[in-house]
Simulated assay, not measured.
Amino acid sequence: MSLVTARGTDPDSCDEFGYGLGTPGGVLVLRYVAASALEFGGSRQDWLNQLYWSPDGLMSVSYGGCTEFVGSGEAVWVQRAVSHSVQAKPASVGPTRHTVYRLCLREDPPGLAGLRIGTAHVPAEVGDAIRGLAVRGLPEAAGLELRAQVMRGLERPLRDLTDTAGAGTGFALRVARALTQDPADPTTLDEWAVRLHVSAKTLQRDFQRQFGQPFTTWRASLRLRASLILLDAYPVSEVAHRVGYSSASAYIAAFRRTFGRTPGQVGD
């Protein structure tokens, strides 16, 4: 069994747990713990479906021309043979570690049937079952029952990332993947173009082809979408800083223009 490993900074630990391996009803669970960003993907997994979930960090998933941010209440679902990239990073700066679980399955959860790549709602009981699978010495029968709980509980797909692939040359995607790891990155279009050894006009055209909008519009949208996840854990002023706004007032104004409400009204 060949699995894509985490790239970038090596995790502090990566533990494996298997139940019913070699059977359609089995599951392989990998638990990564790290103090810095991790990246999964880059080459597809042809034999196994994958479910990514982090209970305490911010994840993003990229497919074609689409990037979505995922909080602890969601997981990323990827069917076999679908190329993708998932990034995970700690929600806070400093020595705090974050955990990412990756479940490898031969079967689709019934509630996600037909979803090639997208995000799914993770109820509390499903999160508890995923954590429970990563316990040393757990009897196989107990592990298979927890797997069944996960499969039954993943019943609500949230976002389908298919039909979003753009037609760019790849330059815009390289910038986009870097910014999903750090939405606050202040690098300008001209500076990105220098790094990629292309003209700013070429890079701008590639953003338009790939995402249907210019660089600055796409980056503003990315920052606001990332902020929606961070608002669950941080005050507005800190979220504004984390996604690259110079002040909370500038962030609030941009948020209101886009979503028709203030950040403080999210969840009301």
Rank of each mutant, 00 (worst) to 15 (best):
A6K: 05
T9E: 12
P11H: 08
D12V: 08
D15R: 15
G20I: 09
L21G: 06
L21E: 14
G25M: 07
L30E: 08
Y32G: 03
Y32P: 04
Y32Q: 03
V33K: 09
A34P: 14
A34Q: 05
A34Y: 10
A35S: 15
S36C: 07
S43I: 06
Q45E: 15
Q45P: 02
L48E: 11
L48D: 05
L51Y: 02
S54P: 03
P55Q: 07
D56E: 00
L58R: 13
V61L: 10
G64D: 03
G65V: 10
G65N: 03
F69K: 09
S72E: 12
G73T: 09
E74V: 10
Q79K: 13
A88H: 15
P90D: 02
A91Y: 00
P95A: 13
P95Q: 10
R97A: 12
R102S: 06
R106S: 13
E107F: 06
E107G: 00
D108K: 11
D108Q: 15
P109G: 05
G111W: 01
L112H: 07
H121Y: 04
P123Y: 01
G127C: 04
D128E: 14
D128T: 13
I130V: 15
G137V: 10
G137L: 12
G137I: 10
L138A: 02
L138W: 05
A141V: 13
G143R: 09
L144Q: 00
R147L: 13
R156D: 05
D160L: 04
G168I: 08
T169P: 05
A172E: 09
R177I: 13
L179M: 12
T180R: 15
T180A: 15
T187M: 09
E191Q: 14
A193E: 06
R195T: 03
R195H: 06
L196M: 01
V198G: 04
T202G: 01
L203D: 01
F207E: 03
F207R: 08
F207C: 07
R209K: 10
W218A: 07
R223P: 00
R223W: 06
R225N: 11
D232S: 14
Y234E: 03
V236S: 00
E238T: 06
V243T: 03
G244Y: 06
A250L: 12
Y251T: 06
R256N: 07
T258S: 13
G260V: 07
R261A: 11
P263R: 12
G264Y: 01
G264V: 04
